[in-house]
Amino acid sequence: MSDSNTTDITNPSTFILLGIPGLEVAHVWIYIPFCTMYVIAILGNFTILFIIKRERSLRAPMYYFLCMLAITDLVLSTATLPKMLSIFWFNSREINFSACLTQMYFIHCFSVMESGIFVALALDRYVAICDPLRHSTTLTNSVVAKIGLAVLLRSTILALPYPFLVRWWSYCRTNIIPHSYCDQIAVAKLACTDTHVSSYYGFFVEFSVIGLDVPLITVSYIKILRTIFSLPKKDARLKTFGTCGSHLCCILSFYLPAFFSSTRRFDHKVPLHVLVLIANVHLLVLPLLHPIIYGVRTKQIRDRLLKFFTCKRT
């Protein structure tokens, strides 16, 4: 660090990431569980992709959407975790200005993409349970491809303004970011120019994503639950509910922390290190949980996984 931390900076060449402010002494110990979870997340998501690609019987809309989710998790975690781990273990805190903007873009882009994939999964479960006879004709491969393209385009377009807004700011306070990755809100606090446009755009994105996706998912699952409870036999109800239980677990694990994270800007009583730690866990735990939840609760994936390891042993 040099005078660039306190003098006028139009576009700083580097930012300094502090990791988890207030827990610097524990960074070495935090590295161990974070690194372990990252490795498991990478292996788990690659396993999901491998099984779905290997088994022809899994060439169905739900599994195509699961592939999209696995790829999204891989990109989202890899865009943030390696740098985060280097801060914890090697104290490598510098990040290039352009790399910071790229990381920020990937975080926003793939977070929005993940939300869109959950809407697609809810749509698939709605058609499969509420109108099963038309499932194969409604969600054809071309329709699935169009849904995937729409999810990709929406996330790409909505996340695109973030790095441009940050690049236009001038920085005259410091280039030290009290975070372990380039969080847009944390970077905005370093600017000495008006950042209200960025704040308003952030609200617009949150409203466009959460305000649209959550109601769609909620309506879908209300209709799904009505259909399930209308089934005459208890065993049929339990079996049908089990097919969408994994989706509900993943949806709750995504939107509840995201809701808490979006409200952190209004709460100044929560310690900074708690907010940063929750944000880190949110980015890491979701890619870890998704393959575990779908691998354990989805019978088809679980059976293929057990079959694969059984064949390997014999």
Rank of each mutant, 00 (worst) to 15 (best):
K223N: 10
G22H: 06
Y105P: 00
F50Q: 15
L158F: 10
E24T: 04
T10D: 14
S2N: 15
R125Q: 08
T10Y: 04
H179N: 13
T140N: 08
F110W: 08
L49G: 03
K269Y: 08
A188D: 05
F203D: 10
L85H: 00
L283C: 08
L252S: 04
Q300F: 06
V187M: 15
Y38R: 06
H108Q: 14
S230T: 12
H282K: 04
Y38L: 06
P12W: 00
I222V: 11
V219M: 09
S13M: 12
W169L: 13
R134F: 08
I292A: 13
H290N: 09
A236G: 15
H179S: 10
D267L: 06
T310S: 14
P82T: 00
D8K: 15
L153E: 08
A150I: 10
Q184V: 06
V209W: 00
T193I: 03
S198G: 09
P291Q: 09
C182A: 14
S170E: 10
G242Y: 01
A41H: 01
A150V: 10
A186I: 01
V209H: 00
T6M: 10
R154M: 14
F90N: 14
C244Q: 01
T174G: 05
V112F: 15
P215N: 03
S4T: 12
A128L: 03
I42M: 12
S13F: 11
F46I: 12
T14I: 11
N11Q: 14
C182D: 02
S262A: 11
S208V: 04
L256C: 05
P215Y: 08
C250R: 02
F118S: 04
T78Y: 07
L288F: 14
S92V: 07
S230R: 13
L275Q: 11
T6N: 11
R93L: 09
H27R: 07
L66H: 11
C130R: 03
L284G: 02
Y38H: 05
F34P: 06
V270L: 08
T310Q: 12
L149C: 10
A60M: 15
G19F: 00
Y126D: 01
I157P: 06
F90S: 10
L212G: 03
L18G: 06
I32Q: 09
F259P: 01
K223T: 07
H247N: 12
A150P: 04
K239N: 14
Y38A: 02
A191G: 06
R59M: 08
D8N: 14
I87N: 04
M68V: 02
W168S: 07
I40R: 05
Y162G: 00
W29G: 07
T137F: 15
T14N: 07
L123W: 01
V166W: 02
F34W: 03
S199D: 13
L158P: 08
V112Q: 13
R167W: 13
D303P: 02
V39N: 04
F50N: 09
S115V: 03
D73H: 05
P287F: 00
F90V: 03
L190I: 06
L123Q: 03
A145W: 05
V274F: 11
L160G: 05
I71M: 13
L58Q: 02
Y221P: 07
I42V: 15
Y255R: 01
T195K: 06
K189Q: 11
I51Q: 06
L160M: 13
L190N: 02
Y126Q: 09
L275T: 05
H273R: 12
C35A: 13
S170W: 09
G202W: 02
S208M: 15
R173G: 06
